[in-house]
Protein backbone atom coordinates (compact mmCIF):
# COMPACT_ATOMS: atom_id res chain seq x y z
CA UNK A 1 0.00 0.00 0.00
CA UNK A 2 2.87 2.31 0.76
CA UNK A 3 4.27 1.69 -2.71
CA UNK A 4 0.96 2.25 -4.37
CA UNK A 5 0.44 5.49 -2.42
CA UNK A 6 3.87 6.68 -3.47
CA UNK A 7 3.09 5.88 -7.09
CA UNK A 8 -0.14 7.86 -6.97
CA UNK A 9 1.69 10.70 -5.22
CA UNK A 10 4.27 10.84 -8.01
CA UNK A 11 1.56 10.69 -10.66
CA UNK A 12 -0.14 13.73 -9.18
CA UNK A 13 3.20 15.47 -8.67
CA UNK A 14 4.21 14.96 -12.30
CA UNK A 15 1.07 16.75 -13.49
CA UNK A 16 2.67 20.02 -12.40
CA UNK A 17 5.43 20.54 -14.96
CA UNK A 18 7.00 23.45 -13.09
CA UNK A 19 7.32 21.35 -9.95
CA UNK A 20 8.95 18.54 -11.94
CA UNK A 21 11.49 20.99 -13.37
CA UNK A 22 12.10 22.40 -9.89
CA UNK A 23 12.61 18.91 -8.49
CA UNK A 24 15.05 18.19 -11.31
CA UNK A 25 16.94 21.42 -10.53
CA UNK A 26 17.13 20.53 -6.82
CA UNK A 27 18.41 17.05 -7.59
CA UNK A 28 20.93 18.42 -10.11
CA UNK A 29 22.21 20.99 -7.58
CA UNK A 30 22.48 18.31 -4.89
CA UNK A 31 24.40 16.09 -7.30
CA UNK A 32 26.75 18.97 -8.29
CA UNK A 33 27.33 19.77 -4.61
CA UNK A 34 28.17 16.19 -3.72
CA UNK A 35 30.35 15.69 -6.79
CA UNK A 36 32.07 19.08 -6.37
CA UNK A 37 35.57 17.70 -5.51
CA UNK A 38 35.54 15.60 -8.68
CA UNK A 39 34.27 18.12 -11.22
CA UNK A 40 35.79 21.40 -10.10
CA UNK A 41 39.21 22.41 -11.48
CA UNK A 42 40.32 23.82 -8.12
CA UNK A 43 39.78 23.23 -4.39
CA UNK A 44 38.84 26.73 -3.22
CA UNK A 45 39.43 25.81 0.45
CA UNK A 46 43.04 24.83 -0.21
CA UNK A 47 44.70 28.20 0.22
CA UNK A 48 47.97 26.98 -1.33
CA UNK A 49 46.22 26.32 -4.65
CA UNK A 50 45.06 29.93 -4.94
CA UNK A 51 47.08 32.31 -7.09
CA UNK A 52 46.73 35.89 -5.95
CA UNK A 53 47.74 37.33 -9.35
CA UNK A 54 44.67 35.61 -10.82
CA UNK A 55 42.27 37.48 -8.50
CA UNK A 56 39.24 39.45 -9.66
CA UNK A 57 39.52 38.20 -13.24
CA UNK A 58 36.41 38.32 -15.44
CA UNK A 59 34.55 35.22 -16.68
CA UNK A 60 36.37 33.30 -19.39
CA UNK A 61 39.85 34.26 -18.16
CA UNK A 62 42.50 31.55 -18.60
CA UNK A 63 44.45 31.42 -15.32
CA UNK A 64 48.09 30.72 -14.64
CA UNK A 65 47.27 27.09 -13.72
CA UNK A 66 46.15 26.55 -17.28
CA UNK A 67 42.34 26.13 -16.90
CA UNK A 68 39.63 28.57 -17.87
CA UNK A 69 37.77 30.43 -15.08
CA UNK A 70 34.33 30.29 -16.76
CA UNK A 71 32.69 32.37 -14.06
CA UNK A 72 35.75 34.46 -13.22
CA UNK A 73 37.66 34.64 -9.93
CA UNK A 74 37.12 36.44 -6.63
CA UNK A 75 39.39 38.72 -4.64
CA UNK A 76 41.48 35.79 -3.33
CA UNK A 77 41.91 34.28 -6.78
CA UNK A 78 39.39 31.50 -6.17
CA UNK A 79 37.76 30.04 -9.24
CA UNK A 80 34.11 31.10 -8.77
CA UNK A 81 32.65 28.00 -10.39
CA UNK A 82 34.54 25.81 -7.90
CA UNK A 83 33.72 28.10 -4.98
CA UNK A 84 30.01 28.11 -5.86
CA UNK A 85 29.80 24.30 -5.95
CA UNK A 86 31.66 24.01 -2.64
CA UNK A 87 29.49 26.77 -1.21
CA UNK A 88 26.39 24.98 -2.43
CA UNK A 89 27.56 21.88 -0.58
CA UNK A 90 27.97 23.83 2.66
CA UNK A 91 24.65 25.58 2.22
CA UNK A 92 22.83 22.30 1.63
CA UNK A 93 24.61 20.58 4.52
CA UNK A 94 23.74 23.36 6.92
CA UNK A 95 20.20 23.80 5.62
CA UNK A 96 19.38 20.10 5.78
CA UNK A 97 21.02 19.44 9.16
CA UNK A 98 19.46 22.50 10.76
CA UNK A 99 16.10 21.57 9.23
CA UNK A 100 16.37 17.97 10.46
CA UNK A 101 17.37 18.98 13.98
CA UNK A 102 14.64 21.62 14.14
CA UNK A 103 12.14 19.03 12.85
CA UNK A 104 12.97 16.43 15.52
CA UNK A 105 13.16 18.98 18.30
CA UNK A 106 10.03 20.87 17.30
CA UNK A 107 7.92 17.81 16.53
CA UNK A 108 8.79 16.20 19.86
CA UNK A 109 8.21 19.39 21.80
CA UNK A 110 4.94 20.27 20.05
CA UNK A 111 3.39 16.80 20.03
CA UNK A 112 4.79 15.99 23.47
CA UNK A 113 3.34 19.09 25.08
CA UNK A 114 -0.02 18.49 23.41
CA UNK A 115 0.10 14.93 24.74
CA UNK A 116 1.03 15.91 28.29
CA UNK A 117 -1.36 18.85 28.38
CA UNK A 118 -1.89 21.08 31.39
CA UNK A 119 0.80 23.40 32.65
CA UNK A 120 3.61 21.81 30.62
CA UNK A 121 1.71 22.47 27.44
CA UNK A 122 0.88 26.05 28.41
CA UNK A 123 4.46 26.97 29.30
CA UNK A 124 6.08 25.24 26.32
CA UNK A 125 3.69 26.75 23.83
CA UNK A 126 3.94 30.27 25.30
CA UNK A 127 7.74 30.05 24.88
CA UNK A 128 7.21 28.97 21.28
CA UNK A 129 4.73 31.83 20.72
CA UNK A 130 7.17 34.29 22.21
CA UNK A 131 9.87 33.09 19.86
CA UNK A 132 7.57 33.23 16.84
CA UNK A 133 6.70 36.82 17.64
CA UNK A 134 10.11 38.12 16.63
CA UNK A 135 12.05 37.33 13.46
CA UNK A 136 14.09 34.13 13.34
CA UNK A 137 17.09 36.03 11.96
CA UNK A 138 17.34 38.04 15.17
CA UNK A 139 17.69 34.96 17.37
CA UNK A 140 20.05 33.27 14.91
CA UNK A 141 22.13 36.46 14.84
CA UNK A 142 22.40 36.64 18.62
CA UNK A 143 23.15 32.94 19.00
CA UNK A 144 25.86 32.84 16.35
CA UNK A 145 27.39 36.02 17.77
CA UNK A 146 27.54 34.36 21.19
CA UNK A 147 28.75 30.95 20.01
CA UNK A 148 31.22 32.13 17.44
CA UNK A 149 31.97 30.98 13.90
CA UNK A 150 31.84 27.41 12.68
CA UNK A 151 29.60 24.96 10.95
CA UNK A 152 28.29 23.24 14.11
CA UNK A 153 27.59 26.54 15.86
CA UNK A 154 25.73 27.77 12.79
CA UNK A 155 23.60 24.62 12.62
CA UNK A 156 22.72 24.95 16.31
CA UNK A 157 21.82 28.62 15.89
CA UNK A 158 19.60 27.91 12.87
CA UNK A 159 17.89 24.92 14.50
CA UNK A 160 17.20 26.98 17.63
CA UNK A 161 15.71 29.74 15.50
CA UNK A 162 13.49 27.41 13.49
CA UNK A 163 12.25 24.64 15.77
CA UNK A 164 9.36 26.89 16.84
CA UNK A 165 7.64 26.56 13.45
CA UNK A 166 7.73 22.78 13.72
CA UNK A 167 6.58 22.88 17.34
CA UNK A 168 3.54 25.04 16.45
CA UNK A 169 2.54 22.80 13.58
CA UNK A 170 3.10 19.56 15.49
CA UNK A 171 1.18 20.93 18.46
CA UNK A 172 -1.85 21.79 16.34
CA UNK A 173 -1.84 18.43 14.60
CA UNK A 174 -1.31 16.51 17.86
CA UNK A 175 -4.24 18.29 19.54
CA UNK A 176 -6.46 16.98 16.78
CA UNK A 177 -5.00 13.48 17.10
CA UNK A 178 -4.80 13.14 20.87
CA UNK A 179 -8.57 13.00 21.38
CA UNK A 180 -9.15 10.37 18.71
CA UNK A 181 -10.26 6.95 19.80
CA UNK A 182 -7.19 5.10 18.57
CA UNK A 183 -5.10 7.09 21.06
CA UNK A 184 -7.55 6.19 23.84
CA UNK A 185 -7.34 2.59 22.68
CA UNK A 186 -3.54 2.68 22.85
CA UNK A 187 -3.58 4.25 26.29
CA UNK A 188 -6.12 1.80 27.62
CA UNK A 189 -4.06 -1.20 26.51
CA UNK A 190 -2.05 0.20 28.47
CA UNK A 191 1.01 1.26 26.48
CA UNK A 192 3.74 3.55 27.81
CA UNK A 193 3.38 7.26 27.15
CA UNK A 194 6.50 7.21 24.97
CA UNK A 195 5.04 4.53 22.78
CA UNK A 196 1.70 6.29 22.47
CA UNK A 197 3.47 9.53 21.56
CA UNK A 198 6.06 8.22 19.10
CA UNK A 199 4.20 5.33 17.55
CA UNK A 200 0.63 6.58 17.52
CA UNK A 201 0.40 10.37 17.73
CA UNK A 202 3.54 11.58 15.93
CA UNK A 203 3.26 9.43 12.79
CA UNK A 204 -0.23 10.82 12.27
CA UNK A 205 1.06 14.40 12.57
CA UNK A 206 3.61 13.91 9.78
CA UNK A 207 1.87 15.32 6.67
CA UNK A 208 1.73 18.96 7.84
CA UNK A 209 5.24 18.64 9.30
CA UNK A 210 6.68 17.48 5.97
CA UNK A 211 5.24 20.60 4.39
CA UNK A 212 6.81 22.85 7.02
CA UNK A 213 10.07 20.96 6.62
CA UNK A 214 10.42 21.71 2.90
CA UNK A 215 9.74 25.38 3.47
CA UNK A 216 12.05 25.55 6.48
CA UNK A 217 14.99 23.91 4.68
CA UNK A 218 14.79 26.68 2.09
CA UNK A 219 14.52 29.21 4.92
CA UNK A 220 17.51 27.71 6.72
CA UNK A 221 19.61 28.03 3.57
CA UNK A 222 18.53 31.65 3.18
CA UNK A 223 19.18 32.36 6.87
CA UNK A 224 22.64 30.83 6.66
CA UNK A 225 23.40 32.97 3.61
CA UNK A 226 22.15 36.03 5.46
CA UNK A 227 24.29 35.33 8.51
CA UNK A 228 27.33 34.66 6.33
CA UNK A 229 26.64 37.83 4.39
CA UNK A 230 26.58 39.74 7.65
CA UNK A 231 29.90 38.15 8.58
CA UNK A 232 28.60 35.91 11.37
CA UNK A 233 28.41 32.63 9.52
CA UNK A 234 31.36 30.61 8.35
CA UNK A 235 35.02 31.66 8.39
CA UNK A 236 36.16 33.44 5.19
CA UNK A 237 38.48 30.53 4.40
CA UNK A 238 35.47 28.27 3.83
CA UNK A 239 33.02 30.56 2.07
CA UNK A 240 29.40 29.50 1.73
CA UNK A 241 27.19 31.13 -0.89
CA UNK A 242 26.31 33.98 1.45
CA UNK A 243 29.96 34.66 2.25
CA UNK A 244 30.83 34.65 -1.46
CA UNK A 245 28.15 37.24 -2.12
CA UNK A 246 29.46 39.34 0.76
CA UNK A 247 33.03 39.07 -0.49
CA UNK A 248 32.08 40.35 -3.91
CA UNK A 249 29.71 43.01 -2.67
CA UNK A 250 32.37 45.73 -2.36
CA UNK A 251 33.44 45.22 -6.00
CA UNK A 252 29.93 45.53 -7.43
CA UNK A 253 30.20 49.20 -8.23
CA UNK A 254 33.68 48.87 -9.69
CA UNK A 255 32.26 46.72 -12.50
CA UNK A 256 33.39 43.32 -11.15
CA UNK A 257 29.80 42.12 -10.96
CA UNK A 258 30.57 38.38 -11.33
CA UNK A 259 31.98 37.89 -7.82
CA UNK A 260 28.57 38.58 -6.23
CA UNK A 261 26.13 37.88 -9.04
CA UNK A 262 26.95 34.26 -9.84
CA UNK A 263 26.79 32.97 -6.25
CA UNK A 264 23.62 35.02 -5.90
CA UNK A 265 22.04 33.34 -8.90
CA UNK A 266 23.00 29.91 -7.56
CA UNK A 267 21.41 30.76 -4.19
CA UNK A 268 18.23 32.11 -5.75
CA UNK A 269 17.83 29.09 -8.04
CA UNK A 270 18.32 26.70 -5.11
CA UNK A 271 15.85 28.45 -2.81
CA UNK A 272 13.20 28.93 -5.47
CA UNK A 273 13.46 25.31 -6.62
CA UNK A 274 13.18 23.96 -3.06
CA UNK A 275 10.21 26.24 -2.42
CA UNK A 276 8.36 25.18 -5.56
CA UNK A 277 8.83 21.52 -4.68
CA UNK A 278 7.67 22.24 -1.13
CA UNK A 279 4.58 24.11 -2.33
CA UNK A 280 3.62 21.25 -4.59
CA UNK A 281 4.02 18.72 -1.75
CA UNK A 282 1.92 20.96 0.49
CA UNK A 283 -0.83 21.20 -2.10
CA UNK A 284 -0.89 17.45 -2.47
CA UNK A 285 -0.84 16.63 1.24
CA UNK A 286 -3.49 19.19 2.10
CA UNK A 287 -6.77 18.09 0.52
CA UNK A 288 -8.34 21.38 1.55
CA UNK A 289 -6.22 23.26 -0.96
CA UNK A 290 -7.13 21.01 -3.87
CA UNK A 291 -9.05 22.50 -6.69
Amino acid sequence: MAQEQLRRFWQEFSENKIAVVALFVVLALVFLAIAAPFITPQNPYDLSSLVLSDSRRPPGFVGSKGFTHWLGTDAQGRDLFSAILYGLKISLEIGLSAGAIAFCLGATLGAGSAFLGGRTEAIAMRIVDLQLSFPAILLALVLSAVMGQGKVQLIIALAAAQYAYFARTAHGAAIAERSKEYVEAARSTPLSSWRVLFRHILPNCLPPLIVVATVQVANAIALEATLSFLGLGLPPTEPSLGALIANGFQYMLSGRYWISIFPGIALIVLIIAVNIVGDQIRDQLNPGLRR
Binding site: K180, E181, Y182, E184, A185, A186, S188, T189, R199, H200, P203, N204
Partner: peptide
Protein backbone atom coordinates in the same frame (compact mmCIF):
# COMPACT_ATOMS: atom_id res chain seq x y z
CA UNK B 1 -9.84 -4.86 31.21
CA UNK B 2 -9.91 -3.86 27.54
CA UNK B 3 -12.29 -1.79 25.48
CA UNK B 4 -14.05 -1.99 22.13
CA UNK B 5 -15.01 1.46 20.88
CA UNK B 6 -18.04 2.77 19.08
CA UNK B 7 -16.44 3.97 15.88
CA UNK B 8 -14.12 1.44 14.24
CA UNK B 9 -13.08 4.14 11.75
CA UNK B 10 -11.51 6.17 14.56
CA UNK B 11 -10.36 3.47 16.96
CA UNK B 12 -7.66 1.99 14.71
CA UNK B 13 -4.42 3.84 14.05
CA UNK B 14 -4.47 4.49 10.28
CA UNK B 15 -0.70 4.07 10.06
CA UNK B 16 -0.38 0.64 11.64
Amino acid sequence: VQMVFQNPFASLNPRL
